[in-house]
Nucleic acid binder design. Structure first.
Lengths: 218, 218
DNA sequence: ACACATCTTGACCATTTGGTCAGGTTATCC
DNA sequence: GGATAACCTGACCAAATGGTCAAGATGTGT
């Protein structure tokens, strides 16, 4: 096939890796790192096992690549905030974008959950580095908002975890939710309702006036 | 050893099963059903593999027994409610007991999460039967409270999921939480703070007056 | 048409998997 | 001190595991 200058990537390779990655994400999401077998991933992708290994090198490398892909999506969602911003807008945007990540990438969300469940051996650096810094920087701003009387004085870190957990849940526990609510799947309309619900409860729960139109209240 | 009338259980058996169950709960919680190996469980329990299998019969039976043990704990937590009850008290008790389950049985909580993550193949009946009925019966009462103006008209089912998710999170995502908050473990004091935080946000978020002392408000 | 890198895959390997079993040890009741 | 049921475990098994490799198929730039 085409003789390419080193770092470039064939079309064939792109297509195969796409199939493998998507298949692997499903399998790893369901069964975790150890519970997933290369054979199962190959079957899911409709390729021979040796072909899968030709592209990804090893099960471990494939898993790490998938985690990195998911962390990249996560990072893409996180934008900066400042004290000058409106708490209502920021928190609502935060909830909505996190929920959107769950809705558009349920498998990736579950993959992430499975990794945390096994003690996050592959994510220690990320959690203790980037993500910790991210949380702490938001926490500072939340604290300032509370000091200014723009929201109730709640612990910012638990608040962030509340938003993460309540949205993440709709990917990780989808099977439970579908079983209980007698649904085949969660529709886009369901996601709209749930997101509105969460925005409402959490903003009101923090004592944040919703979209105060004007400016400061304190 | 003692010749026992059939259904009774030896002390030796009790002790061995205890060790095996606890070890298995840890391993299954970390790695899921497929990812856990009998050998790993045996090592964790400090017993030869054949001895583990002597007691539990098979990996599958062990897993199912553990799920049942966890569901029993869950059921023990769920008590009945009626329209006459005080919404604030009921919701707060609900949050507190769910959080207590998470705190006292983190491994079991994670085991449950892993089972749901893999699509809940062993819990379909439970989810679509008992648990669905439980949710629906609470939903009816919540709805009546809302109609009486005792709380905001929020969807009861999403509210229940919010409580489940925000509490469950502290078991399932413990590794993430510890990494981000620079903790070695969550202390009892942490749990108290988090529980208070969640009660506060969720009750206020639903427009429920906290412990109104007197009686109805509507 | 030739060269050459990419791709494809069945055969194969050592190790681990869940599970069985036979032959033994232990403990307690009578 | 037997009798007997419970307990224990190393040896073993077929199947599945992650991974390697060699030999060939494919495609494209020149």
């Amino acid at each position: 096939m085409t003789a390419l200058i080193s770092p470039e990537v064939t079309l064939t390779r792109q297509r195969s890796e796409q199939r493998i990655f998507d298949a692997a994400e499903r399998i790893f999401a369901s069964h975790g790192y150890r519970g997933a077998s290369v054979q199962a991933i190959a079957d899911e992708a409709g390729l021979p096992k040796s072909n899968v290994l030709y592209y990804v090198g090893s099960k471990r490398r494939l898993y790490v690549a998938l985690l990195e892909r998911m962390m990249a999506r996560w990072n893409a969602m996180l934008d900066d905030i400042s004290v000058e911003d409106d708490p209502a807008e920021v928190l609502e945007a935060f909830i909505r974008s996190k929920m959107e990540l769950t809705r558009t990438h349920p498998q990736g969300s579950r993959l992430f959950a499975a990794e945390i469940l096994q003690g996050a051996p592959f994510l220690q650096d990320y959690l203790r580095g980037e993500l910790r810094a991210w949380v702490q920087s938001r926490a500072v701003v939340f604290k300032q908002w509370a000091d200014q009387g723009l929201m109730d004085p709640v612990d910012p870190v638990w608040l962030i975890f509340l938003i993460w957990s309540s949205t993440q849940h709709y990917a990780d526990f989808e099977a439970q939710i579908l079983g209980i609510t007698e649904r085949e799947a969660l529709s886009d309309a369901d996601y709209v309702h749930i997101t509105d619900f969460l925005c409402r409860i959490i903003l009101q729960g923090c004592g944040i006036a919703r979209r105060p139109e004007g400016a400061l209240i304190g």
